[in-house]
């Protein structure tokens, strides 16, 4: 049971990330590779403030969210100048830059040695030290983010986003200030990714920069592509599927000499098959 609960916690964290990324990529059509950076900032905010300055979980998370918001707002302004491939490269650049800072700014982040002993949150005296309670707390946030996504999707804000995704020129000519909308959704999404990062740091209690590299961003992409772009349900399903798949492969009883590589092979094959059978993702409503 403990094993499933732990998987459940990871699911919640990845679901939060998938929902946040899908808002930017699915709803708005912005191919951002920057989310690993925001995830990392959220995690390190909690790690540094809790272990080195005695802050509590919620205030640390808030600090991380605010930092992400400011960063996203600033970066968003630069990003809005770019389209397509360039948007992707510049956003990837943010991931690389943040990773570099986390890795090398040793006086702040302890570099590759990582930060350990990160505590768990408390609310009104109740300490979320058991994994089951932590899971429940994380799940509450998943529900919140899911609701937020659906709310935006169905609102006029969401319609404007989808408009600028489909045809930005037209949307601008209709009077919508698309740069403001892009900036808003990017900032919001970054803050959500920060929350996921904070939960991750608290859950695993021991973080290092290697969890926040560009490759992680590609994994987030895979989640929402498999699950379905522009769909809240798709985000959540994608997260669950890509978490469960490698776990299920363990139980196939492959020979120990080659098990790890065969598992990779099967995982890769399943990805290809999924794309071949359902190119729009399991519950996708939109193609980039």
């Amino acid at each position: 049971m403990e094993y499933l609960i732990n998987l459940g916690i990871l699911f919640c964290i990845y679901a939060m990330l998938a929902l946040s990324l899908n808002m930017v990529v699915g709803l708005s059509g912005l191919v951002s590779l920057a989310h690993a950076a925001f995830y990392g900032i959220g995690a390190y905010a909690v790690a540094i403030l809790m272990t080195m300055h005695g802050f509590g979980f919620w205030s640390s998370m808030l600090a991380g969210v605010v930092l992400n918001g400011i960063t996203a707002f600033a970066v968003g302004k630069i990003l809005s100048k770019f389209k397509g491939d360039y948007y992707a490269i510049v956003s990837a650049g943010l991931s690389v830059i943040v990773f570099s800072v986390l890795l090398n700014f040793k006086s702040l982040t302890k570099g590759p040695l990582g930060i350990y002993g990160i505590g768990k949150p408390s609310v009104a005296g109740f300490h979320f030290s058991s994994s089951l309670s932590f899971l429940a707390l994380a799940f509450v946030f998943v529900v919140l983010f899911y609701a937020l996504f659906v709310l935006i999707d169905k609102s006029s804000f969401g319609r404007a986003l989808k408009g600028l995704r489909e045809d930005e020129v037209l949307t601008v000519s209709l009077g919508y200030k698309t740069t403001k909308y892009k900036s808003l959704i990017f900032t919001l999404s970054a803050m959500m990714a920060g929350v996921a990062g904070s939960f991750f740091a608290s859950y695993i209690a021991f973080i290092d920069p290697t969890s926040f590299q560009l490759a992680e961003g590609i994994f987030f992409f895979t989640m929402i592509t498999v699950g379905g772009l522009s769909s809240a349900f798709g985000s959540v399903v994608g997260a669950a599927l890509l978490l469960i798949l490698p776990e299920a492969l363990r139980f196939l009883g492959l020979p120990y000499e080659t098990a790890a590589q065969l598992q990779q092979l099967i995982y890769g094959a399943l990805l290809v098959m999924m794309m071949a059978f359902r190119p729009q993702g399991l519950f996708g409503k939109f193609k980039v």
Partner: peptide, 18 residues
């Protein structure tokens, strides 16, 4: 296989123990 990742190592250890 911990894939040199902390979360994978954590999940593996949970699986091995529980």
């Amino acid at each position: 296989d911990d894939m040199m990742k902390t979360q994978q190592a954590a999940v593996n250890t949970q699986k091995l123990i529980n």
